[in-house]
Design a protein around this nucleic acid. Structure first.
Length: 189
DNA sequence: AATAATAACAACCGCTGTGTC
DNA sequence: GGACACAGCGGTTGTTATTAT
């Protein structure tokens, strides 16, 4: 990491919020042609009014060609639960064991689905130990993490059923990654 | 049909660790 | 060794879609 005197504090009105298709294309195009680099520099060079951090997140979580999204399989669900029981909220570490999945996706998945179901199961069992919360809220916890499977043992097909209504690529208002990448291919030489 | 509640996802924020000057 | 810039991580919040009343 090199330091450059005027590298970060050039405040060129930073854009926030959802990424537009144009921005995505610019980012994909730029990285395809120049590769990943120092993100702040990349953002500026590409002409994006975004922080390097934002560009990095967007690229890693959505635009990378090897990113898989939606439809987490039962195998992946199980793996997530096992790894979470082992490591707690080490999402990036967990993500490394799920090919094509990002830490952000796994984190969201855990919070919105698995955690909820664990809570339900606990309520159903009429217990109040709060094991699952412990496991999810204390990121520093290294051992004695209760295996969620112990407190939460869904029938497997039920478990599958909450894999969520991911939008499929058929919606014409939604541009898929395939669309983006093919556009990118057209744009680049 | 309208509205409220909930779920799911995308993105940002703050912090920490690391490398360079 | 301190300051700085950056990458990466985990937590949190905002937005949109879906479901229930």
């Amino acid at each position: 990491m090199k330091k450059s005197p005027s590298s970060s504090s050039h405040d060129v009105q930073v854009r926030k919020g959802p990424w537009t298709m144009e921005e995505d294309l610019i980012l994909i195009n730029y990285i395809t042609n120049h590769g990943e680099g120092v993100w702040n520099t990349l953002a500026r060079s590409a002409g994006l009014k975004r922080t390097g951090k934002s560009c990095r997140l967007r690229w890693l979580n959505y635009l990378r060609p090897d990113v898989r999204r939606g439809n987490i399989t039962p195998e992946e669900q199980l793996l997530i639960m096992e790894l979470h029981a082992k490591w707690g909220n080490r999402w990036s570490k967990i993500a490394k064991h799920l090919r094509g999945r990002t830490d952000n996706e796994i984190k969201n998945y855990w919070r919105t689905r698995i955690q909820k179901h664990i809570k339900h199961a606990e309520n159903f069992n009429g217990k109040s130990s709060g094991h699952a919360d412990q496991a999810t809220t204390s990121s520093t916890q290294t051992c004695n993490v209760i295996n969620p499977m112990e407190t939460y043992s869904p029938p497997y097909d039920n478990f599958q059923s909450f894999s969520g209504p991911y939008p499929t690529e058929t919606n014409e208002n939604v541009w898929s990654m395939e669309d983006l990448w093919s556009m990118q291919l057209l744009n680049s030489d």
